[in-house]
Simulated scan of single mutants.
Amino acid sequence: MKHTLMSGFSFLHLPFKWTYREHKGQMSTFITVIGTLGAIALLIAYGLVSTAKMTGDSLAYQAINLGGALALAVNSGYHGAWPSAILNIVWTAIGVFTVGRFVARKAARTP
């Protein structure tokens, strides 16, 4: 019997069966889309700050950076590009810290 990813769920009577290779290909495509969206987000944020349409100390800029870096960290880690993954993990940590400061300041101002 050929082992498939969904073979343990035969009671579902699905009209298809995913092989591991098909699943891996779909996951790779999904991860690539996530990484591409992360790169686009970082480029948009950089472009907005560079053209003075957004400030580097704004919550929007920090949130875009956080999301973009997280997406690229996932993509880089999945593909084994460890220097890029580590860079983006650190970038994400900085984003989490900075967004956390924004949230804490806002909470302190709210009565």
Rank of each mutant, 00 (worst) to 15 (best):
A41W: 05
A63R: 05
I44N: 02
I89Q: 09
P15L: 12
I34L: 15
A52P: 09
N88V: 03
A39R: 14
W18Q: 03
T29K: 07
T19H: 00
S84T: 06
F30E: 12
G47R: 13
S50M: 11
A73I: 12
K2H: 07
T32I: 04
S10C: 03
K17C: 13
T19Y: 01
T4E: 01
T55L: 04
I89N: 09
K106T: 06
H23E: 05
T36D: 08
L42I: 12
W82S: 07
H79F: 12
A73M: 09
Y78K: 01
K24I: 07
G95L: 09
A63D: 02
G68V: 00
V99Q: 07
V99Y: 02
H13I: 00
R109E: 11
A52K: 14
G67K: 00
W91F: 15
P111F: 11
F11W: 00
K53M: 14
P83M: 01
G25F: 05
S7P: 06
S58T: 06
A108W: 10
D57N: 11
V96K: 02
G35W: 03
M1G: 12
L72Y: 02
L59P: 07
S50I: 04
V49D: 13
F11R: 12
L37N: 06
A104W: 02
A93D: 06
T36M: 11
H79Y: 12
P83W: 05
T19G: 08
F102H: 15
V103R: 15
L66N: 04
V74E: 07
P15D: 10
F9N: 10
A69L: 07
L70N: 05
L43T: 00
G67H: 03
A85I: 08
S10E: 08
I44T: 00
F30V: 13
A60N: 01
L12E: 04
L14S: 06
F97C: 01
P15I: 02
I31R: 04
H79Q: 11
F102M: 13
G8S: 14
V49H: 10
G35H: 05
P15G: 01
I44D: 13
A85N: 02
H23Q: 03
R105K: 15
R105V: 14
M54R: 08
L59I: 10
F97R: 08
P111H: 09
V74I: 09
N88P: 15
K2M: 03
G100L: 06
A81T: 08
R21G: 03
R109D: 04
A93C: 15
K17Q: 14
A85P: 10
